[in-house]
Design a protein around this nucleic acid. Structure first.
Lengths: 195, 195
DNA sequence: GTCTATAGAAGGATAGAC
DNA sequence: GTCTATCCTTCTATAGAC
C-alpha cells in the first residue's frame, strides 16, 4: 500500500523502488503504467487515499444519530486510531499536501480536490441537519482544519490530547449551529409549527 | 534563511548544498559547526524558527485589548500574510513536523518542544484573562490545531477561507470561555438578561 | 509487457590541501 | 578553520534483452 508510505513519511522521502517493493509489483512495469513517473503515481495515490478516507468519513458520520454525535465519534475514533497505530495513522495526504503546496502544482491540485471532497461530504450532512448551507460549509471547513491541525500536534507530541480537544470544540460549534429543536409537544400553539 | 526552505518545501526536499548556498556560507564549514550533519541543522532550524514565531504570537496577542481580539487579529493577519506571500508563509515547522513525526525522533522532539512553547504562551494569556488554567490550555491546544490545519487547507486550496473560518470559530470559543463580564451599570436588577 | 541493468543526476558526508 | 575535490549512496528514469 503506497498510501501508507506517503502517510508515514511523505512524498519526497518515499522512493519509487520503495513503492514497487511495497506493492509487490514488477519494477519495469512502473513506467509503462505511469508514464508520468513519480508525479503521476503521487497524484494517483492522493486521489485513491482521498476517496478511501471519504468512505470512512461518511461511514462514521452516518453511523451516529446526529451530526454532533457524528463529529464526536469521528474525532474520538481518530484519537484512538492514532494511539493504536503508534501515531502513524492520521491523515493520508496532509504530509504530502504541505510538501507540494508551493512546489508542485499538479499534486497541489490533487490534494485540494481531496480536501474539497471531504468538506463537501461533511457540509452536506450539516446542511441535512438543518444548518444553513453557507454556514454548513464554513463549519465543515473548520472541522477539517481542526482535525488536520490536531493531527499535526498529536503526532508531534505523541499524545491524543490535541485531537480530543479539537473534537470537543468542533462538537460544541456544530451543536450551536443546529436550528433550535422543536419541542415535541408545544405548549403554545404557534402558527408556524405544523406537520 | 534556511527556515524559509523548510517552510516552503520541507525537510527531505531541502538539500545541504541548497542550505549553504542560501546562507552564503562556506560549504566546508558546515560539518565543523554541525557535526551532526543535516539532522543537527534541522533541529537548530526548527528551534530558532520556533522562538521567532513565538515572538510573533506574543506580539500580536499583546497588541490587542483582549484575548478574543488577539485571536481574531492573529488569524486575520495569518490569512493576509498567506495571500501576500502566495501561500508560502504559513507555519515554519508544520511540514517538517509531519515529515519527521514517525521517522526521526530527534527532530520530532524538536517540533514537539516548539509546539509546546506556542501553546504555553497562548495558554498563559488565556489564563491571565480569567480562564481556568486547565481550560486555558485546552483552548490554546485547540487554537493552535485550528490554525495549523487551516494552513494546510488554505495552502492546498490557495484560498484564505479556511484560516478565516478557523479564526472565527476560535474567537467564539475563547469568548465563550471568558468569565461573565460584570455589567458597568446594570439596567435591570434581575439576574437574567432581557431585552 | 515484464524484467535486468544501468545511465545520469543529486543526495549526504569526508579527506586533505592550505 | 576554510575551502575544494571527491567518495559513496540513493534517487528517478530509460534502454534493451526476452
Amino acid at each position: 500500500m503506497t498510501s501508507g508510505l506517503f502517510r508515514r513519511q511523505g512524498y519526497h522521502a518515499t522512493g519509487i523502488k520503495q513503492i514497487v517493493e511495497a506493492a509487490n509489483a514488477p519494477f519495469g512495469s512502473i513506467y509503462h503504467f505511469f508514464p508520468g513517473g513519480k508525479e503521476e503515481i503521487g497524484a494517483q495515490v492522493i486521489r485513491s487515499s482521498g476517496t478511501l478516507y471519504l468512505r470512512l468519513i461518511e461511514a462514521i458520520l452516518d453511523s451516529q444519530p446526529n451530526v454532533v454525535a457524528g463529529a464526536r465519534a469521528f474525532f474520538e475514533g481518530a484519537a484512538a486510531q492514532l494511539v493504536a497505530t503508534d501515531y502513524v495513522d492520521a491523515c493520508p495526504i496532509a504530509t504530502v499536501a504541505l510538501e507540494v503546496a508551493s512546489t508542485n502544482d499538479t499534486l497541489r491540485q490533487a490534494t485540494d480536490e481531496v480536501f474539497e471532497l471531504w468538506i463537501g461530504a461533511t457540509s452536506d450532512r450539516f446542511a441535512a441537519a438543518g444548518i444553513d448551507v453557507a454556514r454548513a460549509r464554513e463549519l465543515a471547513v473548520f472541522a477539517l482544519a481542526a482535525l488536520e491541525g490536531a493531527f499535526v500536534i498529536s503526532r508531534a507530541a505523541r499524545d491524543p490530547e490535541a485531537v480530543l480537544a479539537a473534537g470537543r470544540e468542533v462538537a460544541v460549534a456544530v451543536q450551536a449551529a443546529l436550528p433550535a429543536r422543536r419541542p415535541r409537544r408545544p405548549r403554545h400553539p404557534s402558527p408556524t409549527t405544523r406537520e
